[in-house]
Structure formats: C-alpha cells, structure tokens
Design a protein around this nucleic acid. Structure first.
Lengths: 206, 206, 206, 206
DNA sequence: TATGAATGAGGGTTCATTCAT
DNA sequence: AATGAATGAACCCTCATTCAT
C-alpha cells in the first residue's frame, strides 16, 4: 500500500527538521552548515531546498514550532479562569515539558533567540515581544485581582518571572543536563514558583 | 610635547576596542567583520592585527573586560562583611552601572555569552561557571546566616537571582532601551532585590 | 548515451590535476594561486575544493603520482633478476620517459621536492629517503656481485648516480628544453650510464 | 675611538646578512619574513630597508656572495695551468669548503636556486648558465687535451659532474648533516672525483 | 640611524545556493 | 523527488613596504 504522497512529504520534512534541530543545537545556527543538516538527515544537501527555501526559513520553521506551542498554551491560559499561580505554573511546565520532550528545541530557543540579537530579525523580535506581553497580561491580571503586589510594575515582574525560568533552563542547557524524571521536574517547578511568589527571604525571620 | 608612545599605543588599542564593541553589539560576533571594526575605528584593515592577534583574541579581550570587572567586584564583596542584601545589591549595581557606562559591553555579554553556547570555548565556560559559583557562595552564606530560606538549594536561588537580573538587562538590550537616569536605575535595582527577597505575592493577602 | 558519473568525476579531477601541473610548473607551488589553477582548468574557483581538500593536498596528489610511478617501477626492478646495469638503465628511463610524457610532473619533482626543503613535510621527506634507499639497494647488490667497485660506499655511489640523472633533467627543466625524439633520449640515457659506470676519463690514456 | 662610519654600516649590513642566511635557510625564501630576519638580527624591521632595498635585493645579495666566490674561483682556475683533474677538484673543494664555513649559504643555493625555477629571475638564470658554461669550458679543455673522453658531449659530462657534487651536498643539506672534519671532506672529494673520472664499474672485472 | 605604527593588496578557504541530469 | 557538481561572494589573516617621528 502506497503512502499518501503528502504524508511522505511531511515525513521527509520531519526528518530534515529533526536533523536541523540536532545540528543547530550542537553548532549554533551560524556554524551549522546545510550540508551538515543534510548529512544528519541522510539525504543530499540539494534536497533540503525542496522542503525549505533557504537556511533562514529552516531556522524560522524551528522557531515557529516553539512559538506556536507557547502561544497556543498562552491562548488557552488566557481563556481559562485559573488563578495566577496556576497560570504561571502552566508556563513553567511548558518550558520544562518541552525541555524534556524536545531538548534541542529549547536549547535553540535559549541560545539563539532568547538573548541573542545576532539572529534577530524584526519578525522574530515581534514573537519575542508578544510572548512578553502575553505573560505580562497574566501578571497584570494577578495584580488586578490583588494576588500579586502592585508596587512593582507588571513588566518588571514579568522580566523576573521569565528570567528565573530561562536561567534555570539555560544553565541546564549549558551543562547539557537532563531533567531526571518527574520528581525533579516537580521540584524545579515548585522552587521557581515558590521563590517568585514568596521571595527568597527567610520568612520566619521577619 | 610628545606623547608617551605606550600611551599612544593604549589609545589606539582603546579606539579599536571601542569600535569592536560597537560593531559586535550591532552585528553579533559572527557577522562582525574585522573590516567593519577597522572602518569603525577609522584605521586600516591590517592595523587591527597589530593590536590583537585575531578575531577571537579581540573577542576575548572584550569578554575579559566584563569578567575582570565582575570578578574584581565579587572579590571585594566576599571580603566585606556586609549582609547578603547589600552584597546582592552590589551585584545588581554592577550590571546596571556597567550597562549605563558601557551598554555595548553588557549587550555583548548578554547576547553572546550569557546564553549562547555557540561561542563557548572551555576557557569562556570556566569564567561563566566561576561567576555562578561566586554568586552561589554569597547566597549560601545568606542561608547559613538564616537570612535566606534554606528549603531551596542555594544553586536554585542563584539561578533565579542572576536570571532576574539578566532578563531585565537582556530585554533592555533587545529593545535597545537605555536606563534613564539614576532614579530609574534605583527603581529597577530595588524591584529586583525586593521581589527576589520577598516574592511577588501580595503579602497583605496572606 | 550517458556517461558514467564516476568517470565524469575522474575526468574533471584530471582536468584540475593537469591544470595544477601546468600552473605549479610555471609559477612554483608557492606562487601558484588556486584561482590560477581554476582558471587554467576552465572552472570556477570553489570547484577545485570539491575535488581536493586544499592546496597542500593537491600538491601531494601531484607528488604521489611521481612517487607511485617510481616506487612501482623500483618494486618491479627489485623483483626482476636483471643485472645492475639494466636496473640502473630502467631508472634512468623512468626519469626520461616521464619527462617526455609529463614534463611538468618531472619539473615539479625536480624543482619543488628533489632539492627544496621549503615544501618538505616529514611525509614528503620519507618518500624521498625511500627512493634513495631503494636505489642504494640496487647499487649495493651490484657491489655484492662484484659488478660495481666496493672501495666507495654504496650510499656515495647512489648520490652520484641519482645526481647525474637529476642534473640532466633539471638543466633541461631550467631551460625548458624538450627531449627531441627517442634518438636523443637514447643518447642521453647511454651517456649517463656509460659515464657512471666507466667514468669520464679517457680510458685509452690510462 | 670611534669606528669608521662606513665600517659600522658594513657591520650592521653583515649582521642582517647573516640573519637572512639563517632565516632563509630555515624557512626558505618565501616563508622567511622580513620581520623574522630583523628579529634574528636584533633590530627593528624598518631598518632592514636602510640596508637593502627590498626582499628580493636581500636575496640577490646572498646569491651574489655564492656566485662571486664561485666565479672568482673559476676565473683563477681558468688562468692557472693545472690539469683537468686538479681543476675539477678545486670546484669540488669550493662546494665542500663553503659548506663547512657557511653551510646556510650552500643550503640556500642548493634549495632555492640550483633547481628551483620558482625564484628564478632571468638575472639569476644568467648566473646559473654562466657557471655551467665555465665548468663546461674546463671539461672541454680536458677533452681537448685527451684527458677526458670525447665520445660524450662536454655539456653532458658537465651535467654529470655538477650533478654529482650537488646531490652530495643536497642530501647532506636535507638531513642537515655536517661534514665531520677534513678527513671526511677528503674522502667525499676523492670519491666524487674518482667515480666521475673512472666510473663506478669494477675495473678488475673488465 | 632607528623605530614600529600604518597601509592594503592578496590569497586560501568556506559554504549558501543554483541547476543540469 | 533526488543528486551532487558547480558557482562565486565573503571573510580572515599575512606580510612586504612606507613613513612619521
């Protein structure tokens, strides 16, 4: 039985996509060669251009996988009526879950986009700003409901929240550390949320 | 009156250094061409190589400016007997002050080193780990003195602290935002410290 | 009818090889530019790098053509049971025949390897020493069979034999002189062998 | 007491000359940098240009030292009325003596000029041809006096004679071997002359 | 004389992209 | 769909030479 041709197309595209993830993670976008990706995918390098217009497009496809997931989640969160804590926890979970299932994807997001201006086109910057804004909305909503302090700008709180999450991941990325099971994931998530909400100060000492 | 020749040498080196800062900030290390830097410095192509062996060395010189400053500060902090809050505040100030005086330097640190594994030589990784460790020591000391909570690993708290600081800066870097005067700097520093220590939760609501 | 692809590959490689021979002969290895070779081969710049890793490899490929031929011959000579005179004549013939069929190859061997230490890697030096040793074996065998004088070290005789051959060729190379037909080749070969074996002294005068 | 200024000039020139010999011997003309030579001479590299117009001139100065010595000798030989054997021996001695006193000079002659066409300007080629012709005259004279066989062209005999001498030296040069004392020199000189005149054949076997 | 800063033309190599098959 | 030969624009780095001091 023959496969559906468009399914075949998607298959091969996936293979290339996965190869790109792996190679870009290892070498970074700049040093990753199209031929490396093709070799990793087990195809000729000319063929990559049948599925992706050029290197930039391939890169954007990867980033969009990240953003689509995140924006999809955030949309869901916005529409739900959980309290702020739950919502922030969901964002943390998205980062950690994705890191577990597709570590390369998170790696690339962290190293090539989250901070680097090098690869930053205005198109990509827009995505970045959008994620900031969506998080900020959640935070602001928490402030409005008196669940979060209001003496500090929502934007500032957003920086600190996302910064905490990202630094956790980027350090794990740097040392190539995996999350060992759901227990560890739970502890990390709890710690981030706990400290963000209640601070690092020893409360008993107040 | 003749100039001291070695002063002239330092001068020109500074010019090149400054040009490199500017160009690398704009284009990123990879896309920054030595010819761009020379042009920016207003000198000929080959002269850059009189002062720096190659592109990597020039890059490392820039990074060392950052690390030397940070490690110098941290050394001073360790030896002082301020409490944790003051010490953390000093670290925050170093980031913000440097961002005010040499925004490109901070930009490059944030975009090219803090997260990117692309340019990460083991030599550079060592610096990175060292800064983590030094901060962790301060945090751990705070835990020991019962000033910081001990139910969360010092390392985790370190991630969150540095992550908060860095994300603040990296967002400013991304949108090329300057710190407008000491008032804004003070507010930012306060916010970071306040939230890290006391959390984002509205305490009145407990 | 389609060509066998690997045949095409060999063809193009040959074209580049030939172009390299010509250009390196004319300008010497150092002054020969890869772009010159590409232009001579009628191909684009980068294509040379499809077939040869770099300039050194291309150079080595040329040298190996020479050494492979020479060592192949010497192996054949060793295994044969001709007398010394025949064997030495075969070596002379290899030089002269190759000079007729591929003058550039001999030229490059003479000018860039035989004497120059400039381009001498240890890999290349080994080839050189091997050719010396193989010739010395033949000479030594001749001494053992009482066909050559034994009051002079085999190694010294080897120098003189190969030196005579090489100088013949190098002078022809220097003035870009071709061997005009087999008659001249025969006379040259005979002269070299005759003088090496019987000396330049007028025997009638002894 | 002050030195005669022109003597000082000659002194410094000598130092540079010696440094050039050493560096060019080690690296070859192409890879020898003017700065290497200056450093070896212990002076700034700008100063080299006070004494020599450019790199080529410096190179030619070196070569002229060789040629002047050789041509001076050959002039003396021509005018003397020694027999051929003595004269050829004098040429051999010039090579060996110079190799003992100034090994770098011989090295450079052998590796960069004797065979290499790379550095061959027409000016240098003329010197080379002249040395060939002068040697040929001596050989031809020997033929005329019935001391050398006449069935082989004087030019061919010249090739073989000079080739033998040069190959001896170039092998020593290649392996950086020194001549150990006058005894070894005598043996080498004798061997070369003996074989050239009487051949390598075991005469007892005739 | 003497220094070494300054210049800039080259040359080797890489690699994204195109295209004939 | 698939291959990989072919192209050529970049870009790093070297180093002979000049020149202000």
């Amino acid at each position: 039985m023959k496969k559906d041709p468009s399914a075949v197309k998607r298959d091969k595209e996936s293979v290339i996509f996965g190869a790109a993830l792996k190679v870009i993670k290892q070498k970074g976008f700049h040093k990753a060669r199209m031929s490396d990706i093709a070799k990793e995918a087990g195809i000729s390098y000319g063929l990559v251009y049948h599925y992706f217009n050029n290197k930039e497009d391939l890169f954007d496809a990867i980033l969009n996988r990240w953003w689509d997931g995140l924006f999809g989640l955030m949309k869901g969160i916005s529409e739900g009526d959980n309290d702020v804590h739950k919502k922030l926890r969901q964002i943390i979970d998205y980062f950690l879950d994705t890191y577990q299932s597709e570590p390369e994807l998170v790696n690339i997001f962290i190293t090539e986009i989250s901070r680097s201006t090098t690869n930053l086109t205005s198109y990509r910057l827009d995505h970045f700003k959008k994620s900031m804004s969506l998080t900020e909305e959640i935070i602001a909503e928490g402030q409005k409901k008196q669940l979060l302090r209001t003496d500090i700008k929502a934007r500032y709180l957003t920086y600190m929240f996302l910064g905490s999450v990202e630094t956790f991941l980027s350090t794990m990325v740097l040392v190539d550390q995996k999350i060992k099971g759901d227990t560890q994931k739970e502890r990390i998530a709890q710690s981030i949320l706990e400290v963000f909400l209640n601070g690092a100060r020893n409360q008993k000492n107040l």
